[in-house]
Write a protein that binds this DNA or RNA. Structure first.
Lengths: 250, 250
DNA sequence: CTCATCTATTTTGTCGACAATTTATCGATA
DNA sequence: TATCGATAAATTGTCGACAAAATAGATGAG
């Protein structure tokens, strides 16, 4: 009663990222590890799984129609990427980055994005610019359609796409992880009046890249990240656990 | 017949890295996941497990006295950190980074190390400087003892320690991964006349940090990385698989 | 003697079942 | 009635067993 020989990803692990699958019960057989991973990630990036959400193994196994061991593997991977946290004997939860962790993410993203921009400019490839323009258009379409979930996800994926197109698999991998974390951070700490500024900046950055203007592109990217970070409600942490500790100490 | 209640790492996962355990059979009961992971990593960093080495699950399970599932978990983690590669239905092997991947690692390390240096200088903590000095002394001791394995491992761990002391858990995690990859890269591509230059540079960097001289520290660090990268035999790749493909094409 | 093919062994992939811990529910007592 | 303790339910951690694939070895043909 073994299942069919699963189609598995090749060793290279060149993930076909950036796809817009929705999280849902697929009824039939079972999904592959990669599919489960991408569904959960997409759900987190679209803020459909809020930080702190319990991710029960049995529950996910039933949802995706696979064994619990499979879910467990995916959860372990997500935990290594710090997008979920594993409490021993308690289960997996969507991560709730602290303020300090949020700052660290932006601190690392700044030079990493600059690196990516330099690579893109150095390549000087029209196909790359075309794909970036297409993505920006998709962002604007989502914005026109008032699809907030798509807007948030596409905003993060713009940076992942940039890193992938830069040709650095390492930078792409890091950016993928940092973009996921950034989505969680935005969900936790963003003031409600947010998403108006960003897509326009993506468009400007893309234009600077198309012009081959490295200095301007880096400046715009840096300012873009600073804008996003500045929009965060950085002053005080979320009430729950930190206040609890402070209360116990006082 | 279950084992004792294992001492497991707490949720925070603040790994007590930088320990000098040797890879060996420990005879008795069984090691924890973290121990297995650190033993394998240390062995790789000390070049005791050369790139391309097959890491059989059953073999490792017997060596560490644990079940195969446990080994499998650790192997999956190492694969996510790209220090081993998983060939489907073939097993796990110590990674063999390509030339391009090697360049990517240094390309990312440069700004990341600069970030770490800035943080250290900003902290201006004497305890940090003391720990760095102690580490440099350990490096010099290993160098005096002609312990090449310890020299290589400690050289990488200096940078990990720097990142940890900088207070950024994210930077520390990334540096841990990049340092492991760098050890593999050095093993694959380094010319034989290598390790004389590095420890002295660590000492100089530490001194600049002690002086609070951020510009000098960053300059020394950048030059240090460039020296290491320049020592690599970058021109042609390793013979095996690339030549095979070339031969088939020709 | 070399190469191809078939068989046997080893190794990986996957799953279900059991043990241990945590969480929830219920009952007893002050 | 509220709180503490014990029992019951649910969930996670771990392992061994079976199936599929790949490698190694043996056998036979050219």
């Amino acid at each position: 009663m073994q299942k069919k020989t699963v189609k598995r990803r090749d060793a290279g692990a060149s993930a076909p990222s950036l796809q817009d699958e929705r999280l849902a019960n697929d009824g039939e057989g079972g999904a592959s590890d990669q599919e489960i991973y991408e569904r959960i990630i997409a759900s987190i990036m679209e803020h459909r799984l809020p930080p702190g959400t319990k991710l029960g193994e049995d529950k996910l196994a039933k949802i995706f129609g696979v064994s619990r061991a499979r879910v467990r593997q995916v959860l372990a991977r997500l935990a290594l990427e710090r997008v979920v946290v594993l409490h021993p004997n308690r289960g997996a939860f969507v991560a709730e980055p602290t303020i300090d962790e949020a700052r660290e993410v932006f601190e690392v993203r700044r030079p990493l994005e600059a690196l990516v921009v330099r690579r893109i400019v150095a390549k000087n490839d029209r196909a790359i610019i075309a794909r970036l323009h297409a993505h920006v258009e998709a962002e604007e379409a989502a914005r026109a359609a008032r699809d907030r979930r798509a807007i948030i996800r596409l905003s993060g994926e713009y940076h992942v796409l940039l890193a992938e197109l830069s040709g650095s698999t390492l930078a792409a991998r890091l950016m993928h992880e940092l973009a996921s974390l950034t989505c969680l951070i935005i969900f936790l700490y963003d003031a409600p009046s947010v998403p108006a500024c960003r897509d326009q900046e993506h468009s400007e950055i893309t234009q600077a890249l198309a012009d081959g203007d490295e200095a301007t592109a880096i400046r715009l990217m840096t300012e873009h990240l600073e804008h996003v970070e500045a929009c965060l409600d950085l002053s005080r942490g979320r009430p729950e656990e930190l206040d609890l500790e402070a209360a116990l100490a006082g």
